[in-house]
Design a protein around this nucleic acid. Structure first.
Lengths: 209, 209
DNA sequence: GAATTTGAACTGACTGGTCAGTGCAAAAAC
DNA sequence: GTTTTTGCACTGACCAGTCAGTTCAAATTC
């Protein structure tokens, strides 16, 4: 038996190679795009023979799809964990949103290349991994939507808000602010960025004194 | 004399062909990405021979760069116009921001493919058109930053806000909300989307009753 | 105003290079 | 001794960019 299942992690040799390939691929594809990145480059960067890539993944696009699933899995888990933690600590839904913003920032701080590559692919159509992407996107957005829904039910948010649109807007706010941060002002601290976004979330920017 | 100059527009045959090529390229590249899109495809979609592409543009990437400049030029003009209009009408800076959000939505509504392609490239590095992109990005963001700065000076916004980060966040909010709108809920009206974003901007979602 | 010339615009077959994916024998790891 | 990795040569499709030749509308000549 291949000892495949193994809920989390997996410490076979194979798993280690796959991880190296993910890391190599994510950087290269973030920088250059999928089509401009060659399998030879990925193998070289991972310090592995080309044949090994094909021993571990059926094709270049399968490698990419599994990379996507892998990455968004991490993000979703992290967001959900943040929401549940504030729940346990008795915080309100605003606190939950705020914690998720921070979780998002922490994620992007740790995996900027993945985020970049994800954004670049998200709204494309006609690509083979389109369906994978949709599934995975839905999982992540759903976490935010759930918090908004609960917040409305608890009377903490206005009943007039549009759940899915507001969720998109919040995600966009964090995504773009964080990518700009990492790309153009990398020296700033996470707390700094988080504070600015919190302020915006709570409408302390304009009016509403 | 070949009647070349003609300040705006230009109605030569050449100009018409370039326009057709822009339109063909923007859709294809938005769908598939730059590298996955072939010059043959662009030519075919534009109803033109491949040689014509090279007669009009030095290379595939030059075509793309000019396309970027062209598109962001339209956006910047539109944003600036919106800000100035509210100025003339004696609106405050919040109104200016709101008008710019709407202008952004109108732009994305009209040129979704361009927006998509722009987002996909914006945070990449190591590409030949990287510098073009930076310039053009700065022009667009600057318009938003100017309004924020004026707003702080006029005491309309808190002095604590971080201009560039807030600008990024606002852009992200509109960008992502609009792209999700066009991709996944295309039937909704612009007014609808605009209302949801206005609400978020004015902090009428959480607290701040 | 018909015949001729000009040149910008366009065409599409062709070339040289690149790259995903294969095949396989031998080595290394476990 | 089985699984995994290596190294490398090879193939066949695909594609950016080229170039000799064609088109045609406007300008020029007679």
């Amino acid at each position: 038996m291949e000892s495949s299942s193994a809920a989390s992690g997996g410490s076979t040799r194979r798993e280690a190679t796959r991880q190296k390939l993910y890391e190599a691929a994510v950087t290269l594809i973030a920088e250059q795009g999928f089509s401009a990145t060659t399998v030879d480059e990925i193998a070289e960067r991972a310090g592995v023979a080309k044949g090994t890539v094909y021993y571990n993944f059926a094709s270049k696009s399968v490698l990419f799809e599994e990379l996507l699933r892998h990455g968004v899995g991490l993000l979703t888990a992290s967001l959900r964990e943040a929401a549940e933690r504030t729940e346990r600590e008795g915080g309100g839904k605003v606190d939950a949103l705020d914690a998720m913003i921070r979780a998002g920032l922490v994620f992007i701080d740790r995996y900027p290349a993945f985020t970049q590559l994800y954004v670049a692919e998200l709204w494309r159509t006609n690509r083979t991994w389109q369906s994978t992407l949709m599934v995975v996107r839905q999982q992540a957005v759903a976490v935010v939507e759930d918090v908004l829904r609960d917040g409305v039910a608890a009377g903490e948010f206005s009943e007039e808000i549009d759940i899915s649109l507001t969720a998109s807007a919040l995600v966009g706010m964090v995504l773009v602010a964080a990518l700009d941060w990492k790309s153009f002002q990398a020296e700033r601290s996470l707390d700094d960025v988080h504070a600015a976004l919190s302020r915006l979330l709570q409408g302390r920017v304009s009016g509403c004194r």
